Amino acid sequence: MAKNILITGGSGLVGKRLTTILQEKGYNVGWLSRSDSAMEGNIKVFNWDIPKEIIDEAAIEFADVIISLAGAGIADKHWSDKRKEEIIHSRVDGINLLYSKVKNSAKKLDCFVSASAVGYYGDRDNELLNESAPPTNEFLSLCCQKWERAADKFNQLSIRTVKIRTGMVLDKNEGALPQITKPIKLGLGAALGTGKQWISWIHIDDLCRLYITAFENNTMIGVYNACSPLSVTNTEFTKTVAATLKKKLWLPNVPAFALKLVLGEMSKIVLDSTKCSANKTIQTGFKFEYGELSNALQAIYR
């Protein structure tokens, strides 16, 4: 019998692609959604209402594996104090609700897989960061710490729990890459800040395959970095995108002070330096199909 995979955040960037790949592999996929329970194509949609602490009980009965991807977009709005709370609660509250419902259910999950982010590590210059590197007290790091602590509750239920600390996800139509390529296509591309800050990135298909590996490989437990083995600097990233699109770069770097003026604290998304190790992920036997940035971009824009 094919396993049933329940996804939160299924209609998001990663969720949609992951759903397609799961179905191609023969898995049954369900989504938790704020809409009424129904079928969306061949996806079973179950209702949940986090503020009201409601989940369709059939969702828990359906699930052999839960993959938690839900969360408000980090870069969708400026980081007011209210928005920061929304970003945290949109990740933590849903997991807490799932935990309470699974705890009180007779259904035994095979695995719980939760998204996290390399923002856990904060701004770390040239340091190569493995999963044991300590967090910082910056907002993104604190958010990820709370996110992961919520996921860790599933360990109390003797459910194998995997946390995927994700770098910049590369996709042609959604996420950061279209925003980066837009000025480059117009001939107005430039590196940001010093350009020396490291970017840990991953092709969306590699990320989706890692999520699947996380529940298929029974030896995986705890936290894993989801990023290419070859991080690049902001300057290298910008130049590689431009070369792939056959565009020239001629403008000077965008000064950090200008980005801070426009974006406020949210400028840390593009100015922080995070260089992550993929060694622990590779040691599970996982192989990156797109380990080099040029190959990843060529596959995206072919």
Rank of each mutant, 00 (worst) to 15 (best):
S114A: 14
D125A: 12
D125S: 11
N126T: 12
E127A: 12
L129I: 06
E131A: 06
S132Q: 13
S132C: 04
A133H: 07
T136Q: 00
F139H: 12
S141Y: 07
L142I: 06
C143Y: 01
C144K: 08
Q145I: 14
W147F: 09
W147I: 01
A150F: 02
A151W: 12
K153P: 02
F154V: 05
Q156M: 13
I159C: 14
I159F: 09
T161L: 07
D171G: 02
D171M: 03
N173Y: 12
E174P: 01
L177M: 11
P178A: 12
I184P: 02
L186R: 10
K196V: 00
K196A: 10
Q197L: 02
W198P: 00
I199G: 00
W201R: 01
I202T: 05
I204F: 05
D205M: 06
L207C: 07
R209S: 10
R209I: 01
L210K: 00
L210T: 05
I212N: 05
T213S: 14
E216V: 05
E216W: 03
N218M: 08
N218P: 03
T219P: 00
G222P: 11
V223G: 06
Y224C: 04
S231N: 15
V232W: 09
T233R: 15
T233K: 15
T235S: 15
